[in-house]
Design a protein around this nucleic acid. Structure first.
Length: 500
RNA sequence: GGGCCUGUAGCUCAGCUAGGUAGAGCAAUCGGCUCUUAACCGAUGGGUCAAGGGUUCGAAUCCCUUCAGGCCCGCCA
């Protein structure tokens, strides 16, 4: 391709890109193919580091073929060093006029940092002790046309790191570490649940009723059906339909979408694990939760006690269990949930500075008080159990205390990471709870558990007693990778479409 | 939705308090260097100071608006 045509693709041409375009034209003019189809590798950077750990200063007999991105070039006239980075790590390579000859060494010197090359060479150790591949032959596998960020500082600009995550991954080993761990964590969760006989299923993202949680949904439109659909805000109600259908242990790991603000713990689309287990209650789910998180930490990190943002967190089961009311009592707030009036609750709420309105149901006020005075202090891991019944429309009422419901939330480092119930399976009571939610909507609440009559109909047929669990995968990954923000553990976090 | 902070070369950052010719390092280009490793040495080029408006003889700098992002609060159970 000629230079003018190439340049026409780059309306915001800067001198660095222009230089590379010119280089490309020059190389293609020499008959080089800059975008060949494949390269036969026979090893990787990490494998070389491992297998040649005892290599001395002499060249190996074995010939290695590696490929990767050219980083950190240090030219010395008639010889030069560089690092090649591949999917496993990086390795130093050594190009020498004596080995390559005038023409090839000339081409070597034309390479840019960022180019992807394939190398055939032999391994040796330099005088300074670094394991190095001495290049016998190399070829360009992909010409890079944009300069990479600064080699030492990498990219620091948080916005750039999120918008152009590939640069973050190229430049920052920490990003590589986090996302590699994320994959391992998710796959370990799957392995563990499958080992316990859970079946992984997929349920719809496009739903005509967005329920199962209280959050504002995204709305989209189906042209053929000429109907609006919601993106799911939870997996819950479809998974419970599967329990009605006779499955006894199911789980789903998938995106949920909530049309809410973005902050360090919230991304509009996030990965939610939900599981349902027939014939057990929330006590069994507590055990499952702590064993799952503990086992994942142990198998992925090799640790049971971890550091998160300066806090030491011991994940070994059993986790501490504190009732919702005791958690309040520990902060000096004693409540008799059967006797307290809304006015009394409101007064306490005001005195601790909770964000409440007088027409909130009493239970909701209590939860706001809890979130204000207790949540942050729950370094955990800890299960907080038995919540006020009004905030648990999908939960069985407590077997011995009518003001409460059999729900628990697990907290680690002050973050809610799990939410679980003895699932409500009485269809009449379920309808009553949904109606109460609609009443709240009438009072102006935007976020409520929407009434799903089709789900209630499923319950009419009969769902066995069931324990259910939701775990925010992103938050678990944050904790296990010591990441301060949810955006650090989501490859492409939600950002405004405006280009920077 | 409220408060605070940030935006200067491809990247990392100075310069802004107190208005007066736009700076450094890396990267690039040219030259030198056959065991370097953030290689080194010499030279050169590179800017809509986020955008728009205002104040001023003069604005990267002061003021206003907008855009993008971060932190905290609210909301997201």
């Amino acid at each position: 391709m000629n230079l003018e045509e190439l340049k026409s693709f780059y309306p915001e041409l800067n001198p660095l890109i222009q230089a590379r375009l010119e280089k490309r034209v020059k190389m293609e003019g020499m008959g080089l193919r800059l975008y060949p189809y494949k390269f036969e590798k026979n090893t990787s950077a990490r494998e070389i580091q491992e297998r040649f750990a005892n290599q001395g200063h002499e060249l190996s007999d074995e010939v290695v073929r590696i490929a990767g991105r050219l980083m950190l070039v240090r030219e010395h006239g008639k010889a030069s060093f560089a690092h090649i980075k591949d999917g496993t790590g990086s390795i130093q390579v050594y190009a020498k006029l004596d080995n390559l000859g005038e023409a090839r060494y000339g081409l070597w010197k034309e390479l840019d940092v960022g180019d992807i090359i394939g190398i055939r060479g032999r391994v040796f150790r330099t005088k300074r002790g670094e394991l190095t591949v001495s290049i016998d032959e190399f070829e360009i596998l992909c010409k890079s046309l944009r300069p990479l960020p600064e080699k030492y500082h990498g990219i620091k600009d948080i916005e750039l790191r999120y918008r152009k995550r590939y640069l973050d991954l190229i430049m920052n080993p920490e990003a590589q570490r986090i996302f590699t761990l994320r994959s391992k964590i998710v796959s370990e969760i799957r392995r563990e649940l499958e080992g316990q006989g859970f079946l992984e299923v997929e349920t719809p993202v496009l739903q005509s009723v967005a329920s199962g949680a209280a959050a504002r949904p995204f709305i989209t439109h189906h042209n053929y059906l000429d109907q609006d659909f919601y993106l799911r805000i939870a997996h819950e109600l479809h998974l419970k339909r599967l329990i009605v259908g006779g499955f006894e242990k199911v789980f789903e790991i998938g995106k949920a979408f909530r049309n809410e603000d973005v902050d360090a713990q919230h991304n509009p689309e996030y990965t939610l694990l939900e599981l349902y287990w027939a014939y057990v209650d929330y006590n069994d789910i507590m055990g499952l939760t702590e064993n799952l998180v503990h086992k994942v930490a142990l198998n992925v990190l090799g640790k049971e006690v971890i550091e998160y943002q300066g806090k030491t967190i011991d994940l070994r089961p059993p986790w501490k269990r504190i009732s919702f009311l005791d958690a309040l009592k520990n902060e000096g707030i004693k409540i008799d949930v059967d006797k307290i009036t809304k006015e009394e609750a409101y007064k306490i709420g005001e005195s601790v500075g909770a964000e409440i309105k007088p027409d909130f149901p009493t239970g909701k006020i209590l939860v706001k008080i809890f979130e204000k005075v207790c949540e942050e202090k729950l370094t955990g891991p800890v299960h907080i159990y038995d919540y006020p019944v009004e905030v648990c429309p999908l939960t069985k009422p407590h077997r011995s205390n009518p003001g409460l419901a059999e729900r628990f939330e697990s907290y680690i480092a002050g973050m809610e990471v799990a939410n679980a119930y003895s699932e409500l399976n009485d269809p009449a009571y379920q309808r009553k709870m949904f109606m109460a939610q609609l009443e709240e909507r009438k009072r102006g609440e935007a976020e409520i558990y929407d009434y799903d009559e089709d789900f209630c109909e499923a319950l009419d047929y009969g769902m066995p007693p069931t324990g259910g669990l939701g775990i925010g995968i992103d938050r678990i990954v944050m904790i296990l990778t010591n990441a301060p923000s949810i955006k650090e553990v989501i490859l492409f976090p939600t950002v405004s479409a405006t280009q920077k």
